[in-house]
Structures are given as structure tokens and as C-alpha cells.
Computed example of a mutant assay.
Amino acid sequence: MLRASRKQELKELIFVQSIKLFKEKGFDNVTVEEITQACGIAKGTFYNYFPKKEAVLLHLAVSQLESVHESIQRNQNMPDLKQKLLHLFSNLFHQYAEQPDMVRLVVSEMMRADMFIDAEMRIVEKFRQALAALLEDAKDKGLLTTQAASEDIAAVLTGVYFNSLLIWLSGDTAAIQIETLFQRHFDIVWEGIRSEGVVEQ
């Protein structure tokens, strides 16, 4: 367990140092050698964690996907479906508030480069599938009785989340404000879901 923890710490170090260099010099102008020097590691160690420089940028999205799965697992017995969903999304927005410059840089670079589109879409699809599975589980437990397909509800919630992210990226809106905006939009969607059959706790 300790070994796994140390590996995760080293991966985070590589990620953080890389982002610092990307911010200072621009993504295209930073080499893997510069990253390894900043981290005090060998090139081989870098490639043990990231197959190429571009993979560093995907680390944030992968980490957020892991956070979604952890939130679902941690709160699987929470009886209030709305609170379970809001808690899941709040965890994602929390990282924006903690490191807004880093998140802005990573997401902006990923949106700018065509090479990330396929990888991004796969992660978004896994995100949507995780939400759909959560909703389907709520149906199985009798917490959600809507006739709407779980996949469709998950797609709408995913759209609301990424719309909030794009609004945040396009202006000076603070992360705490964007979470409030997300919740307003979420509440509108929730009213539609509830009218079709959410069991209130």
C-alpha cells in the first residue's frame, strides 16, 4: 500500500512540475528532459508514468474520472439521489477552486490540440457511463422511477457540467461561482427528473 502511495505521489509531482513548466514556457516549448530535470528523476522514470508528454495533460481528466468512481463508491448507500449527484459534481468543482490556474491551463491546452480529441471523448463517455450506472442503480433501489432512460439523463447532466466548465474557462468567473451556476442549471434538470418519479427522502 505504501509503495502504491509513493508511486501516486511521484506521478502527482511529475504532473505538477510539468504544468508549472507549461505555464512558464508554453506546452510546445517544454521537453521531457526539462520535466525530468525539474522533478529530479530519470527519463525512464517519467516514461514509467506517462508514455509521452501529451499524456501529462490527460492526467487531470483521468484523475477526475477516478474521483467520480470514488464518490459513487463512497456514497453508494446515501439514500438521497439528488445529494449523491451534487456531492459527486461538487468534488469535481473543488479541484477548480484549489488550483484554478492549473485546471484552466490543462483544459485550454487539451481543447486547443486536435491530438487530444479522441482521448477526451473516451473519458467523457466513461464519465457519462458512470452517471448512467449510478442512475440505473437508483432505479433498482426504487429511488428513481422515471421512464426516461438513465443514459439520456446522464447525457443531459454531463452536458450541464461541461457547459459550466466552458463558462468558467471563458471568463473570470471564480470556481465557487461556477458551482453555484451549475447547481442552478442542475435544479432545472432535477425538476424534470423529479416530476417523472424521484422518491423523496
Rank of each mutant, 00 (worst) to 15 (best):
F93W: 11
A155Y: 12
R6G: 03
T173G: 15
I19G: 00
L143K: 03
I153N: 08
S170P: 10
D114C: 10
N91I: 07
D137L: 04
H87A: 01
E24D: 14
A155C: 13
Q129S: 10
L166E: 11
F89N: 02
L57C: 12
F93I: 08
V124I: 15
N75D: 07
L131E: 04
D80H: 15
L81F: 08
K141W: 11
A4L: 10
L60D: 07
V16K: 00
I123S: 07
D172G: 14
D172T: 07
S170T: 11
D101G: 06
H185F: 11
V30Q: 03
I14R: 01
N91F: 05
I193S: 02
V103G: 00
A149I: 08
I35C: 03
E34T: 06
K11G: 05
L143M: 10
A148P: 00
K23F: 01
K52C: 05
L143V: 02
L88H: 06
V103P: 02
S63N: 06
W190N: 07
F186D: 11
I35S: 03
F89T: 01
I167F: 12
I176K: 06
N48Y: 09
L144S: 01
K82P: 05
D172M: 09
A61C: 14
E98D: 09
I167T: 15
F15D: 00
V199N: 07
K53T: 12
K43D: 12
A130M: 00
V16S: 00
I117W: 15
F116V: 14
F182E: 13
V124K: 15
E191Y: 10
D140W: 04
G159M: 10
L134Q: 06
F93A: 03
S164R: 04
E24K: 12
A132C: 02
A174F: 13
Q83F: 08
A175V: 15
V68P: 10
G44K: 13
R122L: 09
S71V: 12
K141N: 13
L169Y: 13
Q99E: 14
E196P: 03
F46V: 05
K84I: 08
G159E: 12
E120A: 02
Q83K: 07
E24G: 03
R104A: 02
K53H: 04
T31N: 05
D118W: 00
A113D: 13
G40Q: 03
A149Q: 13
D172Y: 06
H94C: 04
M78H: 13
S5A: 02
S5Y: 08
K139L: 11
N77S: 07
V56H: 08
A55Q: 06
Q37A: 09
E54R: 05
E120G: 04
V107R: 11
N91L: 04
S90H: 15
